[in-house]
Each structure stands twice: as C-alpha cells, then as structure tokens.
C-alpha cells in the first residue's frame, strides 16, 4: 500500500512539474501565440498561403490591419512574425510572380490568382451570403482550422 501511494505521489509530482515550470514565466510557443492572437478575429490563416515578405509587411503594420487596429506588444509580434516567416510559402512560387515582393507583396490571400480562380464559378450566391466574407473560410471548408481546404 505504501509502495502504491509513493508511486502515486511521485507520478503526480512528475505530471505537475512541467505545469509548474510553465506557469512561471516561459511564454507560450510562437505557434500557440499565432493561433491565440490571429484567431481572435478571424481564422488563423495558414502561413503557407503567403510568402515571408507578405507576412513581414502584415506584421509590421498591425495598427492598420485591414481597417482595424490589431496591434500587439513587441514580444508577441516578433514571435508570431518569426513563426509565419518560418512556415511561409516559397517566395519564388508562380502565384507571387506578378508581385514585386520587396516593395509591394500581396497582403490579401483572397486576391491571389489561384484563389480567385478556385472560387469564381463554384461558390453559390447562397454560400457567399452565408459566409458573409471571403475570409470566412470555415463557413464552407470544415477543415479550415486544421489547414485543410481540399474538401470541395
């Protein structure tokens, strides 16, 4: 019995140790911060939709974020930009060829050629109305929050 209880106590301690350490001052991972902050207002759009130049431009102008102030403190901003840049699309992809990525990278996924093409004919008026805006991916793509969009 004593042995069982000792094991139980040790097990509980082992389980709690990381939680205690985490509760002190280790910030959440960049990915966790990205999900938490970006999904506060919209789907946390997967980084692979835009090149790193786009993400840097977006993250460095958060006080003017598509008509609203979405500013973050510097630590969160740096962590999230780092995450997005790391997982961004390759800058030399065909989709970005028409842009001067250094001076005027694309800022809206919905403006990219393939996006317009994919949504131009097959999205019904009713579906558009239900979604409200083309940025509301999850209205039609059930796997959107997991980064899965091939369900159409």
């Amino acid at each position: 019995m004593v042995r069982l209880l000792t094991a139980l106590a040790l097990g509980t301690a082992a389980l709690l140790a990381p939680a205690l350490a985490g509760a002190q001052d280790t910030p959440p991972s960049p990915e966790a911060q990205f999900t938490e902050e970006c999904s506060a207002c919209h789907l946390a759009f997967p980084a692979f939709f835009l090149p790193k130049e786009s993400w840097s431009a977006i993250m460095n102008d958060l006080p003017n974020h598509f008509g609203e102030d979405a500013s973050l403190d510097n630590d969160a901003m740096t962590a999230i930009e780092g995450y997005l840049v790391k997982h961004a699309a390759r800058s030399n992809r065909r989709a970005f060829r028409k842009y001067d990525l250094e001076t005027a990278p694309p800022l809206r996924i919905t403006e990219l050629g393939w996006f317009v093409h994919e949504h131009s004919n097959e999205v019904s008026r009713a579906a558009k109305k239900r979604a409200g805006t083309m940025t509301n991916c999850a209205a039609c793509h059930r796997g959107a929050e997991r980064g899965y969009f091939d369900d159409d």
């Binding site: 207002c41 919209h42 409200g132 805006t133 509301n136 209205a139």
Partner: peptide
C-alpha cells in the same frame, strides 16, 4: 451591437 448582453460580430463574420 447596441445590446451588450447579446453577442456581437467582428467585421470578419466571427
């Protein structure tokens, strides 16, 4: 919205 006891909606639809 005008009634804070009810939910609102961001411009994104969320």
């Amino acid at each position: 919205t005008m009634d804070p006891t009810k939910g609102g909606q961001a411009r994104t639809g969320k």
